[in-house]
Every structure is written in C-alpha cells, then in structure tokens.
Design a protein around this nucleic acid. Sequence first.
DNA 1: ATGGTTGTTGGACAA
Length: 257
Amino acid sequence: MRIATWNVNSIRARLPNIMDWISTQKPDILLMQEIKCETSSFPFLEFKSSGYEVRAVGQKSYNGVAIASLHPIEDVTEALPHSSNDEPARYIEAVIKGIRIASIYLPNGNPVSTDKFTYKLDWMARLKQRAIKLLQEESPVILGGDYNVIPKEMDAHDPAAWENGALFLPQIRAAFQEILNLGYTEAFRAMNPHKLEAYSFWDYQAGAWQRDNGIRIDHFLLSPESIDRSTSCHIDRSPRGKEKASDHVPVIIDLDL
DNA sequence: ATGGTTGTTGGACAA
C-alpha cells in the first residue's frame, strides 16, 4: 500500500503534472492540498479515467483538500470538529481499507502579529483534539498533508531565515510536538533519522529551487497501529524540476497491509 | 531592507 501527500497549488494548473506523476508512481491513495477550486470544479473525470475515486472539499480561489484512491472511500468527514460554517476548506478525513486517513492543509500563520497566527494555533489545538479522538479507536490512523511546520533546524536549508516566522517559531513547533506526544510518529524523520537536505517545499522566488533553499513542511503523522505496518517513507523531489511545477513535492509512505 | 514568483483573477491577496 502506497500513500502520497502533495500540496499541488491549484489542481487545474497542475493537472498534467499530477496525472503524469500518478501514472508512474501509482499510489493507492493520493492526499492533495491547495486544490484552489470549488468542489464542483474538481476534475473528477480525469482522475476516474486513471482509476481513482476522489472526495474533495473545495472553495473559490484558496485552500481546498482532496483524497484520491484506487480503493473505495468510506465514512467521509469534510471538516475538523468545531468548525464554523465559513471555515476555510482545509480538512477532509475518510476510511480506506480500514485505515482512517486525513488530508490536512494547516494554516500558514503569517504574518505572525496578526489573527492569522492565532488562527493557526487554534486550528492546531482542534487538530490535536481530533487526533486524541482518533487514537482511541486503536486502529491505523494516517494524518498527512501540508502542516506548515518545520519540525527541526535540520529541516531547513537556512533555518535563520525562518526563525521569526509562523512555520518555525518555538510556539508552533511545540504545538506540533504536542500532537506527536499523544502517540503519533512523524514518519519521514522516524524512518530517515539523519537524512539532510530532505525538503518538500521550495519557494518560487529568488531561485530557491536552484539553490536547494528548501524546507520540510509536508508530513505524515501515524498512529502506532499504522507506523508498525510502514516499511519506508521518502520524498520525490523530481516534480519540482518540471515545467509548471508546484512549489511542493510529494511525500510517499509505503505500508505492509 | 527589498525584491524576487506563481495562482486565482481580472486588483489584490495568499503563499
């Protein structure tokens, strides 16, 4: 079982790249973030022709998350608990082959001195509550997506450039660590403890990709029941070098099921 | 310090 997460930065702008990647990697499940379209505008037919069922929750212009799967998607939840009606489209959760799996687009939180930062903290607190609830099922849980969190210094090419930002401030890293402390494992670092220059995002600006000035902010958090079944986790940076690339690349996890 | 880029849109805003 192969599961990938990818912030695609517009599903419509990225469709050829995504279809190309899917046809070679053939993930059983692909979690997507920043589809940047309303749910009704999602290119469901293109995915269906590649064998994928898709459940999406979108909105006009911004945000939006989706789950594409070769296997039946059941028991879909389209928002975090305690969301308001006008909540941005940042969370979708479902059950696939007995795995409870979520596609997460955690708020960026910048600028730090605005309500965007407090919204990020509030969102992380609500995610923690959901994570607690899901652990109680004592079954495989996989929370994948763009967390907008750089966990450690080693996860940034230039940590100093990020130290006062909402992706790396101690308060944010602590909130991320709180979720791990519940009993979740951040799969990439657990399975590649010393790997350096393993990034999942490079800004479009200032030649960040050419300089390998990246950060690792796209993560898989696994419950004990799912980390026990995982065999590897890696990042495929190759899509970042293509024409019309997203600024993020896919993170892939393989499981024995 | 500023600007550098991309996407959605048709001017900012978000990242």
